[in-house]
């Protein structure tokens, strides 16, 4: 029970710095990957795709709320890109820049969502083991959520009964509005909690849900920021070659020594060549580690503080607002703007 009620949505102090590692064997080579990061990235991508489809499905001249929001967002980033790169050149980069920002923003925000997976896990476990009561006796970790669920059930039953009584007294028709789904959900929970026949639940479902107790920011694992930083570096260098030509691009590494004629072939005696090459690599490092350090630092601080304070709801609201919403938005913006500026500095003369 304590495990559920303390920590940031049930993340305990032991989870700090722990990275789940799964392995697959491909062509005789074992490749390890991080399932939490992959799952969270897929969730973020799904949210973006759904948002994009919903907001562009029925486009009108007089936009609705969602279309309006997305148009404002797009326009803001188009203007930012144009003001740095110029309209002629910026046109090609707007989709990349806007996607980068919205992906990073949602990635940094996803950590504050409540742990729905824990709930699904519990229901699966109950269906597999014959009712919630049985599940509770099996596992101490499940006891907390089950007690919470039980109390919610009891309160809801009382509320429903009271509502029905009121309806009977006033002799009104029983309206089956939005509350219909809520009542159906409660009925479903009743069925689940008294289920006696074990269902054959596949093991991989358990594995996934046990591995992902809570939503975690994909940006807090180094692989996401580093791959986005590398991607931005590829964009920067390809556009530098495109706009300066190969000769101009290679010549820019000779700075401040001349790059004409024989000098191009003598780059190994030019000390600035080495400095420029290391500088370009250091750009990728600083670009990606800035995001990584900020998000990881924020999430660790939230976990530690909520473990220290035994907050009643497992979520210190102020810390989540500062490190989740504020710092998350600022770091996503900084990452995006640095990508634009690197393109501008490297590709333009």
């Amino acid at each position: 029970m304590l495990i559920y009620l303390t920590g940031k949505w049930g993340l305990s102090m032991d989870s700090i710095g722990v990275i789940t590692k799964w392995q697959i064997v491909l062509f005789g080579q074992s490749i390890s990957y991080n399932p939490v990061m992959l799952m969270m990235t897929w969730i973020v991508m799904a949210i973006i795709v759904i948002l994009a489809i919903l907001s562009t499905r029925k486009m009108k001249k007089k936009p609705g709320k969602l279309q309006m929001m997305m148009e404002l967002f797009y326009k803001a980033f188009r203007d930012l890109t144009y003001s740095t790169l110029g309209e002629e050149m910026g046109k090609a980069y707007v989709p990349y820049i806007a996607t980068l920002f919205i992906f990073l923003l949602l990635s940094n925000y996803i950590g504050i969502l409540p742990p729905v997976f824990q709930f699904f896990h519990m229901i699966l476990y109950a269906l597999d083991n014959g009712g919630l009561a049985m599940a509770a006796s099996d596992s101490a970790i499940m006891l907390g959520p089950i007690l919470v669920l039980r109390s919610v059930l009891i309160v809801t039953v009382i509320l429903v009964a009271a509502n029905l009584l009121m309806l009977l007294k006033k002799k009104k028709d029983f309206k089956f509005g939005i509350t219909k789904y809520f009542y159906l959900f409660i009925a479903f929970l009743f069925v689940v909690s008294n289920w006696m026949i074990p269902l054959p639940i596949p093991d991989f479902l358990y594995a996934w849900m046990a591995i992902i107790p809570v939503f975690q920011e994909p940006t807090k694992f180094l692989s996401t920021p580093l791959s986005l930083g590398l991607l931005s570096a590829v964009v920067v260098h390809v556009s530098a070659i495109k706009y300066k030509g190969l000769k101009g691009y290679l010549g820019s590494y000779m700075d401040p020594l001349p790059s004409e004629g024989i000098w191009m072939f003598l780059f190994w005696i030019n000390p600035f060549w080495y400095l420029n090459v290391i500088g370009e690599m250091a750009k990728v490092v600083s670009h990606s580690f800035r995001l990584f350090g900020n998000i990881l630092g924020g999430s660790i601080i939230i976990v530690i503080v909520s473990n220290l304070t035994y907050f009643m709801l497992p979520m210190p609201a102020f810390l989540n607002a500062f490190f989740g919403l504020f710092t998350g938005a600022i770091q996503a913006f900084v990452f995006t703007m640095l990508a634009v500026t690197y393109i501008a500095v490297t590709a333009k003369d």
Binding site: I16, G293, G297, I304
Partner: peptide, 8 residues
């Protein structure tokens, strides 16, 4: 915050 991260 980086210093805090390393300290923690």
């Amino acid at each position: 915050i980086f210093a805090l991260l390393v300290a923690l």
